[in-house]
């Protein structure tokens, strides 16, 4: 059935009353009618708040002080943020969290996908079990891991104690400034590795079997096949997983708040937690708007560079 017959059928199916109304409208107008609601929603929900946030970021506005005069402060908010040591400390905490979660999730996720891709009995059952953590709410995972990390009753401490011989109550994952940054990395890795695994699995299953057969004919070793066929062909998928996890973890909030509350001290205060405190606890609306704009530009800039790199890899 060709395209013309589809159009004919659509025209015949249009009720006469509506057909009369749209008679004489150009294709372009009709296209705009269909697209307009989406554009309106996009402008109302995304673009307008963004512009409004940028405008507020140049003021001293505080939403809890409706009676105070709103003054234009220029770049002062931006200067204060970028010269604030505490903000840089939260940036460092975020970078630590971001880098290590991505590294661990990619390595473990790819390894799991590679194993699951092998045909064995109970393959589907294991896949279901492995993906279970990512079906939970991050807030629930945060709460759940606070119990696992409990020095007196926590399973995590007992497992570590079992292998190291240390007293389970002798260390506190979420109460120690050195261990707490790793506590949130471990919990996030537990939760989101399955997501990376699923993406890698899709990549592995998209590789045609014939390529491996050809490589076998050329007497390529398994090791060589892995590095010259599997890794390059899964790489775009892996990079996509890294992009998703990077963006998600840059704005990580709920799990970490439940797990550590940003402590001890500020060791696990990620930028999103800091931003929330500025905006909805300290009520520095202008300041927090500038903070949000800086984060937006950072994520948007990094993501754009990364997407370009991803496209290059795909083109290869």
């Amino acid at each position: 059935m060709d395209e013309t017959s589809h159009l004919d059928r659509a025209a015949r199916a249009t009720p006469p009353r509506i057909a009369r109304r749209i008679q004489g409208l150009s294709d372009r107008t009709i296209a705009w009618i269909f697209v307009a609601p989406s554009i309106f929603l996009l402008l109302a929900v995304n673009i307008f708040p963004l512009i409004w946030t940028i405008r507020l970021s140049f003021t001293n506005y505080r939403v809890n002080r409706p009676n105070n005069a709103v003054e234009w402060v220029g770049l002062e908010n931006y200067q204060r943020i970028l010269s604030d040591e505490d903000v840089w400390q939260t940036m460092q905490a975020t970078a630590h969290f971001l880098i290590w979660t991505i590294v661990l999730q990619v390595l473990i996720g790819f390894a799991l996908a590679y194993l699951i891709n092998k045909k064995f009995k109970g393959n589907d059952l294991w896949t279901t079990i492995i993906v279970f953590p990512m079906m939970l709410s991050p807030a629930v995972v945060g709460n759940f891991w606070t119990f696992l990390y409990q020095p007196q009753i926590g399973l995590f401490n007992y497992v570590v104690a079992f292998f190291t011989g240390a007293d389970p109550a002798s260390f506190s994952m979420i109460g120690d400034v050195n261990l707490a940054p790793w506590a949130i990395v471990i919990a996030d890795t537990w939760m989101w590795t399955p997501f990376v695994m699923l993406i890698c699995l899709a990549g592995l299953r998209s590789i045609p079997e014939s390529i491996y057969e050809a490589a076998e004919c050329d007497r390529a070793s398994k090791w060589r096949q892995f590095w010259t066929i599997t890794v390059p062909m899964v790489l775009p998928f892996l990079m996509l997983a890294v992009l998703f996890r990077g963006i998600e973890n840059f704005k990580m909030f709920d799990m970490v708040v439940q797990l550590t509350g940003g402590g001890p001290g500020n060791t696990t205060t990620l930028t999103s937690i800091d931003l929330k405190r500025e905006a909805f606890e300290r009520w520095r609306t202008g300041y927090s708007s500038a903070y949000a704009v800086i984060l937006f530009v950072t994520v948007f800039g990094l993501a754009s560079i990364y997407v370009k790199a991803l496209n290059k890899v795909k083109e290869r």
Binding site: P151, G154, S170, S172, I174, G175, P264
Partner: peptide, 8 residues
């Protein structure tokens, strides 16, 4: 004098 892990 406080239990381990009572940091929050």
């Amino acid at each position: 004098g406080t239990p381990p892990g009572s940091s929050n």
